[in-house]
Amino acid sequence: MADPHIKSPMDVLDKLTVCLYRSGFVFAAIFTALLPYYEFAHIGLLAAALLCASSLHIYLKSFRLLLQFATWLALFFQIIGQTELALGAALVTLGGLCFKEYFCFRIFALNLMPIFVALLWVTKVMQITLGLQILCVICTALFTVLAIQKWRMPLHFDIGDKGKYQI
């Protein structure tokens, strides 16, 4: 998690990982909007989770590993053909990161994203079309707000104090 008031020195890898992380939320917004209409959209959400999980800047190792493990599970489930479980695991990562971003930067309603993405997953699996469409609109809007807010921030906001990271 970041301390925006602290500006640690950033190398090229730091800048790249922050950009990959932020791009994950752009992908999440796009593919959440497409989820009710295109079968491939869950692959885009998996890619979004991969972009974010590969580039996490979270001080606590246990939370970082938990969110990354959910993405590894999503990949595993996709490989074995369990697309519903793959989508669910990817949404765990994305919802968890939204929750984290709420506490780092107080972006409106992100603390509710774990609930919204869980309901989104249930409506997708249960094939409740209207519920899925409504939840996709809500989640797309929140992912979009998050992506816009993140890209407006200086890159160092995502890094914070490098001395606080657990290795």
Score class of each variant (00 low, 15 high):
A2S: 15
P4S: 08
P4K: 04
P4R: 06
H5Q: 12
I6V: 14
K7D: 08
K7H: 13
M10V: 06
M10H: 11
V12D: 15
D14S: 09
V18P: 05
C19G: 02
C19A: 11
L20A: 06
L20R: 12
G24M: 00
I30T: 14
F31I: 01
L35M: 04
L35G: 04
P36S: 02
E39I: 00
H42K: 06
I43D: 10
L45H: 03
L45R: 02
L46D: 10
A47C: 11
A48T: 10
L50E: 14
S55H: 14
L56C: 08
F69A: 14
F69D: 15
W72Q: 13
W72G: 09
L73T: 09
L73W: 09
L75Q: 14
Q78L: 06
A89R: 02
A90D: 05
V92M: 05
C98H: 00
K100N: 14
F105H: 15
F105Y: 15
R106I: 01
I107Q: 12
F108C: 09
A109E: 14
L112C: 04
A118H: 13
W121H: 11
V122A: 11
K124E: 04
K124F: 05
M126T: 13
T129K: 13
Q133Y: 04
C136W: 00
V137C: 04
I138H: 01
F143M: 12
F143W: 10
L146V: 01
A147C: 08
I148D: 11
W151A: 07
R152I: 02
M153Q: 12
L155Y: 03
L155T: 06
H156E: 12
D161N: 15
K162C: 06
K162Y: 08
G163M: 04
G163C: 09
Y165H: 13
